[in-house]
Design a binder for these strands. Structure first.
Length: 502
RNA sequence: GCUCCGUUCGUCUAGUGGUUAGGACGCAAGGUUUUCAUCCUUGUAGCAGGGGUUCGAUUCCCCUACGGAGUACCA
């Protein structure tokens, strides 16, 4: 890569950022870092009617949570600001004017209602209405109207838009880093609106102007933009600018059925489609609040549409930066698989530093009304982390360390509490009392020796014993449990169990 | 409808003009284990269809089917 790589993530603050958007941001970030370039966050808020309170903040917080570092943007500033399109109004005006002067754009007075009627009538004929070289002469615009007519309408403050004058019959050739060469004939395109009657530019104009002004070298965006790439290429040509390199990413599809991933799928199948919880309006759950580690979330996401060509599946952000390449991004859409997302979290549950998990675990324990020392929290986490996918599941794996059984699982009692169990438990109690050093290894040795001496079945002893300590047949190694809760508590639980179960 | 993009196990994917088409998730069966999990082993299942090109196509080309996106004074 030569020159200074500059990429941008340009979301519209119309709601919470979808995980597809997060992936786009991630690929941009990885590409920028890989090539020593910069990531710019530009807020595309030219549609004032769709603005949603809190969305911009959400976007920044989500990127932050994922570990995607923005170099220039609303929050961090930079030499190419402002980074909010709503604050760049005069800039777009100037460039629209240039196009007008050069005769590459024109003014159109047709109202949305008039166009709607036109579309309907075409549709009835089984046709498709397009505002283009074929139809523009018969419509209300500065190309068809006499000059004084245009001036009069403007003087009367009749609302108007500025449209791009798309030439006809021209093959537009484009290069995409992922899809290769794409050719589209300009006759299939229409005269897109560049400037709306409310004085705001549309995406197309603002996007091209900003990418140029901000010296964006690579545009990495979703596939939904591929159909408008010809327009953007034509705009660059109209302005006489060099165009950036383009890469259109495949879409994220729903786990089952047709279509792209939507919030509904998540609600229906019980998984989030957003990185963070969204509290406004119709609330939506998020990966962060659902207990996913950001590392796992990012790891899961990056592999939806990209892979390094090896069997390696677990990557730190640094490794991703090193190994990422836009050329290895797939061309086809990827179905999102919530099961695999869980699996990734399980993997990170095993490889993360104990301390990181223990801190959160300790908070959870305290919320349950118990106090725990940091080293004990770490000890318990080590003991049971392999059994869970999420930190939130840790409590169910350790509750019996804090609470003696309040009842004994019926099925387990039926299965494991036999005629001879009381005798065995009284004997094991005595063995425990005689142990000088109450450590897991010491307890295990003494108990197992005793089992052997008496010729008991290991299963018969251990399951009955577990029943008295845990109340159910679950949990990590029993000797680890009783060593942790201590001799006194262990003997108490045995006594209580014997009392209840007889 | 029209334009564009795409199509390897159920899912994410690797891969090559000649391979036993590889891995992961899931699922299944064994094994380890004092329970439940974890873990380990094995298994399961795929080149959308039809034409070409070729000595030979999953791989290259065309067509069809299917999927996706776009077709707004939304981005």
């Amino acid at each position: 890569m030569t020159g200074n790589v500059r990429v941008r993530f340009a979301p519209s603050p119309t709601g919470p950022l979808h995980i597809g958007g997060v992936r786009t941001a991630l690929y941009n970030y990885l590409f920028a870092r890989k090539h020593g370039g910069s990531l710019i966050l530009r807020i595309e808020d030219t549609d004032r009617s769709r603005l949603v309170e809190g969305a911009e903040q959400y976007i920044m917080e989500a990127l932050d949570w994922c570990g995607i570092i923005v170099d220039e943007g609303v929050k961090q500033g930079g030499p190419y600001g402002p980074y909010r399109q709503s604050e760049r109004g005069s800039i777009y005006n100037e460039y629209a004017e240039k196009l007008l002067e050069a005769g590459m754009a024109y003014i159109a007075f047709d109202s949305p209602e008039e166009l709607e009627i036109l579309r309907k009538s075409y549709e009835e004929k089984g046709d498709n209405f397009m505002y283009n070289a074929q139809t523009r002469e018969g419509l209300k615009n500065s190309l068809s109207l006499p000059a004084d007519g245009v001036d009069r309408l403007r003087a009367q403050m009749v609302p108007y838009v500025i449209r791009f004058k798309m030439p006809a019959g021209e093959d537009i050739e484009m290069d995409d880093r992922i899809r290769g060469r794409v050719v589209v004939n300009s006759s299939t395109l229409d005269d897109k609106i560049l400037f709306k009657s409310d004085g705001m530019p549309t995406y197309h104009l603002a996007n091209v102007v900003d990418d140029h002004l901000m010296e964006i070298t690579h545009v990495i965006r979703g596939e939904e933009w591929l159909p408008s790439l010809p327009l953007h290429v034509m705009l660059y040509r109209a302005f006489g600018w060099d165009q950036p390199s383009y890469a259109h990413l495949p879409l994220l599809l729903k786990p089952m059925g047709k279509g792209k991933l939507s919030k509904r799928d998540g609600d229906k199948m019980g998984f989030p489609v957003f990185p963070l919880y969204w509290p406004h309006g119709e609330a939506a759950r998020g990966y962060r609040e659902d207990g996913y580690f950001p590392e796992a979330f990012v790891n899961m996401l990056v592999l939806l549409g990209w892979n390094p060509g090896t069997d390696k599946e677990l990557f730190s952000m640094d490794e991703l930066i090193r190994e990422f390449s836009i050329e290895r991004v797939n061309r086809s859409g990827a179905r999102f698989d919530p099961e695999k997302a869980r699996w990734f979290n399980h993997q990170y549950m095993q490889i993360k530093a104990v301390g990181d998990i223990a801190d959160e675990y300790a908070r959870m324990v305290e919320e349950k009304g118990y106090s725990i020392k940091p080293e004990d929290a770490a000890r318990l986490v080590e003991m049971v982390r392999e059994r869970v996918d999420f930190i939130s599941e840790l409590w169910y794996q350790t509750d019996f360390f804090f609470e003696a059984p309040s009842h004994y699982d019926e099925a387990a009692v039926r299965k494991r509490w036999k005629q001879d169990s009381p005798v065995m438990m009284k004997e094991v109690r005595a063995v425990l009392e005689s142990i000088s050093s109450f450590t897991p290894a010491e307890i295990e040795e003494r108990v197992k020796n005793w089992i052997q001496e008496r010729g008991y079945g290991t299963g018969a002893v251990m399951n009955a014993f577990r029943l008295l300590i845990v109340g159910e047949l679950r949990g990590p190694h029993l000797f680890d449990i009783i060593a942790f809760i201590g001799r006194e508590e262990t003997l108490d639980r045995i006594d209580r169990g014997l009392e209840v179960l007889g």
